[in-house]
Design a protein around this nucleic acid. Structure first.
Lengths: 134, 134
DNA sequence: TATATTGCTTTCGTTTTGAAAGTTATTTTT
DNA sequence: AAAAATAACTTTCAAAACGAAAGCAATATA
């Protein structure tokens, strides 16, 4: 009845068990950058996630405590997603993805992300601190 | 004929396209920790990867330049896997996994990894520098 | 020489995925 | 007020990825 979540006691393996797929960290990325997103917003990100997959990932990330879902103040059919602290604390992982890709995929990534990688290189702590608080 | 590798120009999405699955980073982890591994060594890691999946991941990681495969000096049936610089440079990503899991999965991860997380917290640069060179 | 081991590959049933279409409640337009 | 559009999903279905197990060839060990 109780399904096993973790393959081992390794922190890397356990992290992968929670958010190690092709989509979860992209949802987190969008929320770090925009702080508030709707289902439609996520759908329109450039990686073209299918709505089935998006719905599934949002509910898993909510269940695992990475994000919260709340009602829009005026529009009844829209829901708003926000990161929790647990989700915001994934920012340093994403930052290292950015740095790695800036070094090894430099001719492929966008100019905007190269600039961001430079900022991280020069001033990691300060850049990241902006994402640590709500 | 040419298959698309990357979903977008985002450095995070592109990193996930290359090594964003449940196994690749665990192979890298083993090689960061042990510097040299055989097929059997990887098979015996505590997450129990199947041999089909392991063979597939090793060949993909080799093809993408994260690791190299070479002959054992004396034993003809054994092959040795090593990280390239490109692979070693994933260490900071793994380090952030360790820090995140130490904070949010502390009651689940091993004591050994908690110690490692503490070392990273106190002395990130020096701890990581050990993994940056061959 | 017989047995065991290594590094895979193959097979196969199950799970996960992506693409597309469908649904419901609400909001906007006419 | 009725019709059309929209948001947030859900459903369907075929394809891809996966895990477990067995099989295999070359080499090493007993």
């Amino acid at each position: 009845m109780v399904e096993k979540i973790f393959r081992s006691q390794c922190p890397i393996s356990s992290g992968l068990d929670l958010f190690g797929d092709k989509w979860s960290l992209l949802i987190v990325r969008d929320l770090l950058y925009h702080s508030e997103r709707t289902f439609k917003d996520f759908s329109q990100s450039s990686e073209n996630i299918s709505s089935a997959r998006l719905a599934d990932r949002l509910s898993k990330l909510e269940k695992s405590g990475f994000l919260t879902k709340s009602k829009h103040p005026t529009n009844k059919k829209v829901f708003l997603y926000h990161l929790t602290q647990k989700g915001r604390d994934l920012a340093p992982i994403l930052a290292e993805f950015v740095c790695w890709s800036n070094k090894y995929l430099n001719d492929h990534i966008s100019e905007e992300s190269k600039l961001f990688a430079e900022q991280l290189k020069d001033n990691r702590e300060q850049v990241l601190s902006k994402y640590q608080n709500p």
